[in-house]
């Protein structure tokens, strides 16, 4: 018998809201959306956590400017997330020293359960999850082990990405979606097919070519138009 699944809900019992940033396709900006969302909530003086669940290739630490080989999550009856920029942060990168972790499905499932079973978040208003692209092991584990989770779906205006949202809407995971963020939109273009998903539109974020310069500098990131758009989405979500 695997003892970890039951303890996961115990570890999250003081977390009011869990929001997982998901997408059907890669490269749509999930990591930046998830990290900025967590930073923006911390800016509002809310107790917030950020968990990077892109287990084979985590990168939230790059956005936050955290050097994983120089930080170790403290041990205290389990492990405690690292405090950075006013938020609690946990990532597998702390254990892989920032290197890639080539894993098959069973290994991904084990990492998910282990991280959730040993991390003590304490009281949080919100825990933001960054996830790998697609609807694979991590997304299924989140849905199975975190019953109250809400999915924030991120897409670009490309038909390739919007089509994957339409597919998501038809799966058993579709009901978890609390809203959609359209990222890297050219000239405010909204794809027509987005309406077919039935998902609530949270915000449309234009493509900002200068955003790359803010990676690793949360203070600068929070002053961008991108962060203002994320704030708009949060206002709708927290209503």
């Amino acid at each position: 018998m695997d003892p970890r699944p039951l303890i996961i809900s115990e570890r999250l019992k003081e977390v009011k809201r869990v929001l997982a940033v998901v997408s059907g396709k890669g490269g749509v900006g999930k990591t930046l959306v998830a990290s900025t969302m967590a930073l923006a909530l911390a800016e509002r003086r809310m107790p917030v956590g950020l968990l990077d669940l892109d287990v084979t290739n985590p990168s939230c630490h790059v956005v936050l400017g955290v050097e994983p080989s120089k930080e170790t999550p403290p041990e205290d009856m389990g492990v405690l997330p690292v405090s950075v920029h006013g938020l609690k942060f946990m990532s597998l990168a702390f254990y892989t020293r920032g290197e890639a972790l080539p894993l098959r499905g069973a290994g991904v499932d084990d990492v998910f359960k282990e991280l959730l079973a040993i991390t003590r978040w304490g009281m949080l208003e919100a825990l933001i999850l960054d996830t790998p692209p697609g609807f694979g092991d991590v997304i299924l584990d989140i849905a199975n082990y975190i019953p109250g989770v809400g999915f924030i779906a991120v897409t670009t205006p490309s038909r390739l990405s919007v089509e994957s949202l339409r597919r998501l809407a038809k799966t058993h995971l579709g009901g978890r979606v609390v809203g959609v963020i359209v990222n890297m939109a050219w000239k405010g273009y909204i794809p027509e097919d987005l309406g077919k998903t039935g998902f609530k539109l949270l915000t449309i974020i234009p493509y900002y070519p200068d955003l790359e310069a803010c990676l690793g500098n949360p203070g600068m990131l929070l002053k961008t138009e991108f962060a203002k758009k994320i704030d708009e989405a949060l206002n709708l979500l927290l209503k």
């Binding site: 115990e10 009856m77 079973a117």
Partner: peptide, 16 residues
């Protein structure tokens, strides 16, 4: 003391 977290998981599973 990460062992305590594992112990809690074992005890929680057995108690369940």
């Amino acid at each position: 003391m990460h062992e305590w977290a594992l112990a809690e998981a074992i005890v929680e599973a057995v108690c369940g």
